[in-house]
Design a protein around this nucleic acid. Sequence first.
DNA 1: CTCGTGGCCTGATCGC
DNA 2: TGCGATCAGGCCACGA
Length: 291
Amino acid sequence: MPELPEVEVVRRGLDRHLVGSRIDAVTVFDPRALKRHPGSAADFADRLSGSTVLAAVRRGKFMWCPLDSGDALVVHLGMSGQIRVLGDDSPKHERIRLALSNRPPVAFHDQRLFGSLALDVTAPTADGLPAGFGSESIELPSQVAHIARDILDPAFDDEVLIRRLRKRTVAVKNAMLNQELVSGIGNIYADEALWAARIHFATPADHIQPAAYRELLAAVRAVMQGALTVGGTSFDSLYVNVNGESGYFDVSLNAYGQTGRPCPRCGTAIIREPWQNRSSHFCPRCQRRKR
DNA sequence: CTCGTGGCCTGATCGC
DNA sequence: TGCGATCAGGCCACGA
Protein backbone atom coordinates (compact mmCIF):
# COMPACT_ATOMS: atom_id res chain seq x y z
CA MET A 1 0.00 0.00 0.00
CA PRO A 2 1.75 3.12 -1.14
CA GLU A 3 2.00 5.89 1.39
CA LEU A 4 2.75 9.42 0.29
CA PRO A 5 6.54 9.00 -0.02
CA GLU A 6 6.07 6.00 -2.32
CA VAL A 7 3.60 7.96 -4.41
CA GLU A 8 6.14 10.75 -4.75
CA VAL A 9 8.69 8.27 -6.03
CA VAL A 10 6.17 7.03 -8.59
CA ARG A 11 5.59 10.65 -9.62
CA ARG A 12 9.30 10.94 -10.31
CA GLY A 13 9.00 7.82 -12.41
CA LEU A 14 6.20 9.40 -14.42
CA ASP A 15 8.30 12.52 -14.77
CA ARG A 16 11.14 10.48 -16.14
CA HIS A 17 9.33 8.02 -18.38
CA LEU A 18 6.24 9.87 -19.58
CA VAL A 19 6.96 13.58 -19.76
CA GLY A 20 7.86 14.65 -23.26
CA SER A 21 6.33 11.56 -24.83
CA ARG A 22 3.31 11.38 -27.07
CA ILE A 23 0.76 8.71 -26.24
CA ASP A 24 0.20 6.87 -29.49
CA ALA A 25 -2.20 4.16 -28.40
CA VAL A 26 -4.27 3.30 -25.34
CA THR A 27 -5.42 -0.20 -24.43
CA VAL A 28 -7.96 -0.66 -21.65
CA PHE A 29 -7.90 -4.28 -20.47
CA ASP A 30 -10.27 -3.67 -17.57
CA PRO A 31 -12.62 -0.68 -17.52
CA ARG A 32 -12.94 -0.95 -13.73
CA ALA A 33 -9.55 0.75 -13.62
CA LEU A 34 -11.30 3.85 -14.98
CA LYS A 35 -13.69 4.34 -12.10
CA ARG A 36 -12.68 7.98 -11.73
CA HIS A 37 -13.02 8.64 -15.45
CA PRO A 38 -16.26 10.51 -16.22
CA GLY A 39 -16.79 8.81 -19.61
CA SER A 40 -16.53 5.39 -21.23
CA ALA A 41 -13.37 3.39 -21.83
CA ALA A 42 -13.58 4.28 -25.52
CA ASP A 43 -13.86 7.95 -24.64
CA PHE A 44 -10.78 7.64 -22.43
CA ALA A 45 -8.75 5.93 -25.12
CA ASP A 46 -9.87 8.23 -27.93
CA ARG A 47 -9.22 11.46 -26.08
CA LEU A 48 -5.89 10.34 -24.62
CA SER A 49 -4.46 9.01 -27.87
CA GLY A 50 -2.29 11.57 -29.65
CA SER A 51 -1.73 13.68 -26.53
CA THR A 52 1.72 14.71 -25.39
CA VAL A 53 2.56 14.62 -21.68
CA LEU A 54 3.81 17.95 -20.32
CA ALA A 55 4.52 17.29 -16.63
CA ALA A 56 3.94 14.99 -13.65
CA VAL A 57 2.33 16.59 -10.61
CA ARG A 58 1.21 15.28 -7.21
CA ARG A 59 -1.07 16.43 -4.42
CA GLY A 60 -1.44 13.95 -1.60
CA LYS A 61 -1.82 10.56 -3.24
CA PHE A 62 -3.35 11.98 -6.39
CA MET A 63 -1.03 12.44 -9.36
CA TRP A 64 -1.80 13.95 -12.73
CA CYS A 65 -0.09 14.67 -16.01
CA PRO A 66 -1.09 17.87 -17.80
CA LEU A 67 -1.46 17.17 -21.53
CA ASP A 68 -1.05 19.40 -24.57
CA SER A 69 -4.77 18.92 -25.19
CA GLY A 70 -5.49 20.98 -22.08
CA ASP A 71 -6.87 18.03 -20.10
CA ALA A 72 -4.98 16.08 -17.46
CA LEU A 73 -4.37 12.35 -17.05
CA VAL A 74 -5.19 11.65 -13.40
CA VAL A 75 -3.44 8.73 -11.68
CA HIS A 76 -4.37 7.25 -8.32
CA LEU A 77 -2.70 4.06 -7.11
CA GLY A 78 -5.28 3.20 -4.47
CA MET A 79 -4.14 0.23 -2.41
CA SER A 80 -2.26 -1.83 -4.95
CA GLY A 81 -1.76 0.25 -8.08
CA GLN A 82 1.59 0.34 -9.85
CA ILE A 83 3.05 2.09 -12.85
CA ARG A 84 5.42 -0.14 -14.77
CA VAL A 85 7.65 0.69 -17.65
CA LEU A 86 7.44 -2.61 -19.49
CA GLY A 87 4.20 -4.45 -18.99
CA ASP A 88 5.69 -7.85 -19.46
CA ASP A 89 5.79 -9.35 -16.00
CA SER A 90 2.65 -10.18 -14.05
CA PRO A 91 0.27 -9.52 -16.95
CA LYS A 92 -2.53 -10.77 -14.74
CA HIS A 93 -3.20 -7.38 -13.22
CA GLU A 94 -2.30 -5.11 -16.09
CA ARG A 95 -5.38 -2.95 -16.51
CA ILE A 96 -4.33 -0.23 -18.95
CA ARG A 97 -1.41 0.16 -21.34
CA LEU A 98 -0.11 3.33 -22.91
CA ALA A 99 2.03 2.98 -26.03
CA LEU A 100 4.44 5.89 -26.36
CA SER A 101 5.99 7.48 -29.41
CA ASN A 102 9.61 7.31 -28.34
CA ARG A 103 9.82 4.93 -25.39
CA PRO A 104 8.68 1.53 -24.18
CA PRO A 105 5.03 1.26 -23.18
CA VAL A 106 3.91 2.25 -19.71
CA ALA A 107 1.39 0.04 -17.92
CA PHE A 108 -1.00 0.58 -15.06
CA HIS A 109 -1.18 -2.54 -12.89
CA ASP A 110 -3.63 -2.89 -10.05
CA GLN A 111 -4.58 -6.07 -8.27
CA ARG A 112 -7.40 -4.72 -6.16
CA LEU A 113 -8.74 -1.98 -8.38
CA PHE A 114 -8.92 0.71 -5.75
CA GLY A 115 -6.72 2.80 -8.01
CA SER A 116 -7.58 4.27 -11.39
CA LEU A 117 -6.62 6.39 -14.34
CA ALA A 118 -8.89 9.17 -15.62
CA LEU A 119 -8.99 12.07 -18.01
CA ASP A 120 -10.22 15.27 -16.47
CA VAL A 121 -10.59 18.96 -17.20
CA THR A 122 -8.59 21.41 -15.10
CA ALA A 123 -9.16 24.77 -13.47
CA PRO A 124 -6.87 27.20 -11.62
CA THR A 125 -6.39 26.80 -7.87
CA ALA A 126 -8.44 29.08 -5.65
CA ASP A 127 -5.36 30.56 -3.98
CA GLY A 128 -3.45 31.05 -7.23
CA LEU A 129 -0.55 28.96 -5.94
CA PRO A 130 0.99 25.94 -7.71
CA ALA A 131 -1.52 23.10 -7.71
CA GLY A 132 0.85 20.41 -6.52
CA PHE A 133 4.39 19.10 -6.26
CA GLY A 134 6.34 18.77 -9.48
CA SER A 135 5.16 21.78 -11.45
CA GLU A 136 4.61 25.49 -11.01
CA SER A 137 1.30 25.29 -12.88
CA ILE A 138 -1.77 26.42 -10.95
CA GLU A 139 -4.07 24.17 -13.01
CA LEU A 140 -5.80 21.47 -10.95
CA PRO A 141 -7.97 18.57 -12.23
CA SER A 142 -11.58 19.08 -11.21
CA GLN A 143 -11.74 15.78 -9.32
CA VAL A 144 -8.76 16.82 -7.20
CA ALA A 145 -10.17 20.24 -6.31
CA HIS A 146 -11.63 19.06 -3.00
CA ILE A 147 -8.40 17.37 -1.92
CA ALA A 148 -6.46 19.45 0.59
CA ARG A 149 -2.79 20.16 0.09
CA ASP A 150 -0.50 17.59 1.70
CA ILE A 151 1.87 18.19 4.52
CA LEU A 152 4.97 18.27 2.29
CA ASP A 153 3.47 20.96 0.01
CA PRO A 154 5.39 24.28 0.28
CA ALA A 155 2.04 26.07 0.34
CA PHE A 156 0.74 23.95 3.22
CA ASP A 157 -0.14 26.03 6.28
CA ASP A 158 0.12 24.20 9.61
CA GLU A 159 -1.70 26.87 11.59
CA VAL A 160 -4.67 26.90 9.22
CA LEU A 161 -4.99 23.15 9.57
CA ILE A 162 -4.72 23.33 13.36
CA ARG A 163 -7.49 25.91 13.52
CA ARG A 164 -9.73 23.69 11.44
CA LEU A 165 -8.89 20.57 13.45
CA ARG A 166 -9.74 22.40 16.66
CA LYS A 167 -13.30 22.87 15.42
CA ARG A 168 -13.90 19.19 14.71
CA THR A 169 -15.64 16.91 17.15
CA VAL A 170 -14.63 13.64 15.48
CA ALA A 171 -11.77 11.46 16.68
CA VAL A 172 -8.40 12.98 15.85
CA LYS A 173 -7.46 10.00 13.71
CA ASN A 174 -10.62 10.46 11.71
CA ALA A 175 -9.70 14.09 11.11
CA MET A 176 -6.17 13.15 10.07
CA LEU A 177 -7.56 10.83 7.41
CA ASN A 178 -10.04 13.41 6.09
CA GLN A 179 -8.75 14.36 2.65
CA GLU A 180 -10.51 17.71 2.76
CA LEU A 181 -8.44 18.78 5.76
CA VAL A 182 -5.03 17.33 4.93
CA SER A 183 -4.20 14.79 2.24
CA GLY A 184 -1.66 12.05 1.96
CA ILE A 185 -1.95 10.52 5.44
CA GLY A 186 -2.98 6.87 5.50
CA ASN A 187 -3.70 4.45 8.30
CA ILE A 188 -0.06 3.53 8.83
CA TYR A 189 1.35 7.02 9.20
CA ALA A 190 -1.65 8.16 11.21
CA ASP A 191 -0.92 5.47 13.81
CA GLU A 192 2.80 6.24 13.75
CA ALA A 193 2.32 9.98 14.19
CA LEU A 194 -0.20 9.52 17.01
CA TRP A 195 2.26 7.22 18.74
CA ALA A 196 5.06 9.78 18.36
CA ALA A 197 2.87 12.55 19.78
CA ARG A 198 1.50 10.28 22.54
CA ILE A 199 -2.11 10.87 21.52
CA HIS A 200 -4.89 8.28 21.67
CA PHE A 201 -6.57 7.88 18.28
CA ALA A 202 -10.09 8.39 19.65
CA THR A 203 -9.36 11.72 21.32
CA PRO A 204 -11.86 14.28 20.02
CA ALA A 205 -10.04 16.60 17.62
CA ASP A 206 -11.34 19.70 19.41
CA HIS A 207 -9.88 18.51 22.74
CA ILE A 208 -6.30 18.66 21.53
CA GLN A 209 -4.22 21.76 22.18
CA PRO A 210 -2.34 23.60 19.42
CA ALA A 211 1.04 22.67 20.88
CA ALA A 212 0.15 18.99 20.72
CA TYR A 213 -0.98 19.40 17.13
CA ARG A 214 2.33 21.01 16.24
CA GLU A 215 4.06 17.97 17.65
CA LEU A 216 1.72 15.68 15.74
CA LEU A 217 2.31 17.44 12.42
CA ALA A 218 6.04 17.46 13.01
CA ALA A 219 5.88 13.70 13.55
CA VAL A 220 3.99 13.14 10.31
CA ARG A 221 6.44 15.30 8.42
CA ALA A 222 9.46 13.58 9.92
CA VAL A 223 8.36 10.06 9.08
CA MET A 224 7.39 11.06 5.54
CA GLN A 225 10.56 12.96 4.83
CA GLY A 226 12.64 10.16 6.26
CA ALA A 227 10.99 7.67 3.94
CA LEU A 228 11.36 10.01 1.00
CA THR A 229 15.07 10.39 1.58
CA VAL A 230 15.54 6.63 1.62
CA GLY A 231 13.36 6.07 -1.43
CA GLY A 232 14.87 8.95 -3.31
CA THR A 233 18.37 7.63 -3.05
CA SER A 234 17.58 4.12 -4.21
CA PHE A 235 15.52 5.34 -7.11
CA ASP A 236 18.03 6.74 -9.54
CA SER A 237 20.16 3.68 -10.16
CA LEU A 238 17.40 1.24 -10.91
CA TYR A 239 13.89 2.31 -11.43
CA VAL A 240 12.47 -0.42 -9.27
CA ASN A 241 9.82 1.89 -8.00
CA VAL A 242 8.35 2.33 -11.43
CA ASN A 243 8.62 -1.38 -11.96
CA GLY A 244 6.79 -1.88 -8.71
CA GLU A 245 9.15 -4.37 -7.25
CA SER A 246 10.04 -3.29 -4.04
CA GLY A 247 11.79 -0.70 -3.04
CA TYR A 248 9.14 0.32 -0.82
CA PHE A 249 10.83 1.82 2.07
CA ASP A 250 11.76 -0.23 5.00
CA VAL A 251 10.63 2.35 7.47
CA SER A 252 10.94 1.08 11.01
CA LEU A 253 7.51 1.22 12.55
CA ASN A 254 6.90 1.88 16.24
CA ALA A 255 3.20 1.11 16.51
CA TYR A 256 1.58 0.06 13.24
CA GLY A 257 1.58 -3.72 12.87
CA GLN A 258 3.46 -4.13 16.14
CA THR A 259 0.65 -5.81 18.05
CA GLY A 260 2.00 -7.54 21.16
CA ARG A 261 5.50 -6.19 20.71
CA PRO A 262 6.95 -3.81 23.30
CA CYS A 263 6.47 -0.10 22.83
CA PRO A 264 9.95 1.25 21.97
CA ARG A 265 9.42 4.03 24.51
CA CYS A 266 8.06 2.26 27.60
CA GLY A 267 7.99 -1.46 26.86
CA THR A 268 4.24 -1.90 27.24
CA ALA A 269 2.71 -4.24 24.67
CA ILE A 270 1.23 -2.47 21.65
CA ILE A 271 -2.50 -3.03 21.23
CA ARG A 272 -4.50 -3.40 18.05
CA GLU A 273 -8.08 -2.25 18.22
CA PRO A 274 -10.69 -2.54 15.45
CA TRP A 275 -11.81 0.92 14.44
CA GLN A 276 -14.16 1.91 11.65
CA ASN A 277 -13.49 -1.13 9.49
CA ARG A 278 -9.78 -0.64 10.05
CA SER A 279 -7.28 -1.16 12.82
CA SER A 280 -5.67 1.23 15.20
CA HIS A 281 -2.34 0.34 16.80
CA PHE A 282 -1.25 2.17 19.90
CA CYS A 283 0.55 1.96 23.23
CA PRO A 284 -2.01 1.81 26.04
CA ARG A 285 0.42 3.47 28.45
CA CYS A 286 1.88 6.27 26.33
CA GLN A 287 -1.38 7.01 24.54
CA ARG A 288 -4.04 7.28 27.19
CA ARG A 289 -7.59 7.91 26.15
CA LYS A 290 -8.88 11.27 27.35
CA ARG A 291 -12.41 12.47 27.51
C1' DC B 1 -21.94 21.82 7.28
C1' DT B 2 -20.59 17.81 9.92
C1' DC B 3 -20.51 13.10 10.99
C1' DG B 4 -20.90 7.83 10.73
C1' DT B 5 -21.48 3.78 7.99
C1' DG B 6 -20.85 0.80 4.29
C1' DG B 7 -19.19 -0.25 -0.46
C1' DC B 8 -15.70 -0.99 -3.79
C1' DC B 9 -11.97 -4.98 -4.81
C1' DT B 10 -8.61 -9.38 -4.73
C1' DG B 11 -5.71 -12.53 -2.49
C1' DA B 12 -3.64 -14.34 1.68
C1' DT B 13 -4.73 -16.68 5.74
C1' DC B 14 -7.32 -19.29 9.12
C1' DG B 15 -10.66 -22.49 11.22
C1' DC B 16 -13.47 -26.34 10.39
C1' DT C 1 -8.69 -30.82 0.06
C1' DG C 2 -11.96 -27.43 -0.03
C1' DC C 3 -14.84 -23.89 1.55
C1' DG C 4 -16.54 -19.85 3.80
C1' DA C 5 -15.20 -16.07 6.83
C1' DT C 6 -12.04 -12.47 7.83
C1' DC C 7 -8.71 -8.99 7.00
C1' DA C 8 -6.10 -5.43 4.48
C1' DG C 9 -7.48 0.14 3.51
C1' DG C 10 -7.87 4.95 0.21
C1' DC C 11 -11.55 7.22 -1.06
C1' DC C 12 -16.32 8.28 -1.75
C1' DA C 13 -21.55 8.02 -1.82
C1' DC C 14 -25.18 8.45 1.06
C1' DG C 15 -28.27 9.25 4.87
C1' DA C 16 -28.93 11.40 9.36
